[in-house]
Amino acid sequence: MKYAVTSKGDNKSNELMQQIKDQLDSLGVIYNEDQPDIVISVGGDGTLLYAFHRYSSRLDRTAFVGVHTGHLGFYADWIPEEIEKLATAIAKTPYQTVEYPLLEVTVRYSHGGRESKYLALNESTVKSVGSSLVMDVEIRGESFERFRGDGLCVSTPSGSTAYNKALGGAILHPSIPAIQLTEMASINNRVFRTIGSPLILPGHHTCMLKPVTSDDFQMTIDHLSLLHKDVKSIQFRVADERIRFARFRPFPFWRRVRDSFVTD
């Protein structure tokens, strides 16, 4: 068993990271930052997003587990007081894994050449640079609508509780292989019209955005912000890859939703 640890970077998270290292080292677990079997994220959901992107090339060989040092997270199910218990479980307990769907984003350019591909754990957003976004939306290769507004967000099921929820999107259970398209302040009047509702696309469907009035876009892939120029199209689909989480005990999704948004 080989492990690595990522930290949010604040004092509390760094101290917990060192405690985890000390505990696992004493139990004979090998620290390997380059080729870990398990990655322990200490901080919050943002820290785990960072860990996911850092190890995205090893998704079939690496599982993730989160320790939250602030508010309860959707990806972090252990608390600081359980560090010793977690270390013992990692060292001595065969763990199960649960897999969550990911979003694949492919950006193609007008001048041809190499396309850009990304994986997102939470979501990807698209906004125009300096003006309203105008995009032709295609689903499964067929024209669906011409969108005008502030932007569009495409999320995974596990990311449906993040920005997607703030935009009025549905919360999807992460066992469902799907993606969700939500609008940001669409323009709807007697001239312009969009569907106005979130769209949930199954795993065998693709969503394609094609520029109408501009080809420069500000995009996000989870916490990463990227400027793309001379864009011909942006394609979204459920990725073939999946993220794996190490489970040493039950961590019910709907309980997390309730605890995060409903209970005090």
Rank of each mutant, 00 (worst) to 15 (best):
G43I: 01
D34Y: 12
F144R: 04
I179E: 08
L133Y: 10
Y95I: 00
V39W: 10
E15N: 10
H111A: 07
I176H: 09
I179V: 05
F261V: 00
S155L: 07
W78R: 01
V262C: 10
I179F: 14
F251L: 03
F147M: 04
D37V: 00
E81G: 13
S124E: 09
Y163L: 13
S110E: 15
K229F: 11
D150H: 04
E81A: 13
L227I: 11
R61P: 12
N32M: 02
V39F: 07
G44N: 06
Q19A: 06
F251P: 07
F74L: 05
R193F: 08
V29G: 01
I200S: 06
Y50I: 06
Q19V: 06
K21C: 05
P36E: 00
M135P: 06
L167T: 07
R140G: 11
V191E: 14
V98A: 09
S175M: 08
K117Q: 11
S186F: 11
S13G: 04
F192G: 03
Y109G: 00
A51W: 05
V39P: 12
E82Y: 12
S41L: 05
E84Q: 13
D25K: 15
E33P: 05
G196R: 02
E183Q: 14
E84I: 08
K117M: 10
S56I: 06
S7C: 11
A120T: 01
D264N: 15
V134N: 11
Y50H: 15
P177I: 03
I171N: 04
H223D: 13
E115Y: 14
E183F: 12
V5I: 14
T125Q: 10
V105F: 07
S214F: 08
P250H: 03
R258S: 04
L152Q: 04
T93A: 02
G73C: 10
Q18G: 04
D222E: 08
A185N: 15
G73R: 04
L227V: 08
M17R: 15
C207S: 08
T62E: 02
Q23H: 14
V98H: 09
A91R: 03
R58Y: 14
R244Q: 05
S26Q: 12
G28C: 06
L227W: 14
T62V: 03
E138A: 07
